[in-house]
Design a protein around this nucleic acid. Structure first.
Lengths: 120, 120
DNA sequence: ATAAATATGCGAATGAGTTGCATATGCAGT
DNA sequence: ACTGCATATGCAACTCATTCGCATATTTAT
């Protein structure tokens, strides 16, 4: 547990917005001004492997991260603002498992993103 | 309509396996041996913009393509083999739209991939 | 406190995809 | 078919996110 890692973890805890590696680097600098980009990348990879963090690709070139804790959820991206909204739907979860089963598979993972614009 | 583009289109028609740009380049060489990578990339971008092709990211670094025609479908990736299976589920479609609506959005696009291993 | 193990910073390397530019090609209009 | 011009191509150089090598610094086990 190093200064750099503590800085990254704090930056992550303070972030509610699915930050990317660059944002995390900036935010972590507040707690460890000398932290390097490479360290952020290395640490995020580690955290992801440990299952403490989830990595997402919302299609903007950079990977985005969030703490892996809360109940399973999916994301809706507001195409007008880029805002990311989390949602959870039990029917949807069940349906995903059911579809995989129907195709002869055990569902191990999945990725669902909805892209939408605000109504009217 | 150039030789290079015809080659790429033929390569694409002959491909049932969601090829990436490298695979398409190789396959297009059969019809135009001097075709360049850059041309494949440029053409795929064009085809995607024209809506003739869909670009997917199945999480292996390279974008994968398929002709945009058939009815809307999602993908299940067999984690054991890398094979990509297409499926369509009406309930799922309806549910996605319904969830977006519930959150106050009109669904414009979505991305769903299931990752699974063969049962038992 | 010391040594062995691990993490860091830096800059260089990677790899997918893009781009600048000079040349080649497709496509009118004749 | 022929000329002109717009567009596409090949090539090599470039971008940008991410990774890596390595010498040094920090942790952790002893």
């Amino acid at each position: 547990m190093t200064t750099a890692r503590r800085a990254i973890l704090k930056a992550l805890e303070n972030s509610e917005d699915h930050p990317d590696a660059l944002m995390l680097h900036d935010r972590a600098k507040e707690f460890d001004p000398t932290i390097a980009q490479a360290t952020v990348y290395r640490t995020m990879r580690l955290l992801e492997q440990e299952g403490l963090v989830e990595k997402h690709d919302f299609g903007n070139g950079r990977a985005r991260y969030e703490e892996a804790e809360k109940e399973q959820h999916d994301h809706l991206i507001n195409l007008s603002t880029g805002e990311i909204i989390e949602f959870h739907d039990t029917d949807l979860e069940a349906l995903k498992i059911e579809i995989a089963k129907r195709l002869g598979f055990d569902l191990k993972d999945h990725r669902l993103e909805l892209y939408g614009v605000p109504k009217e």
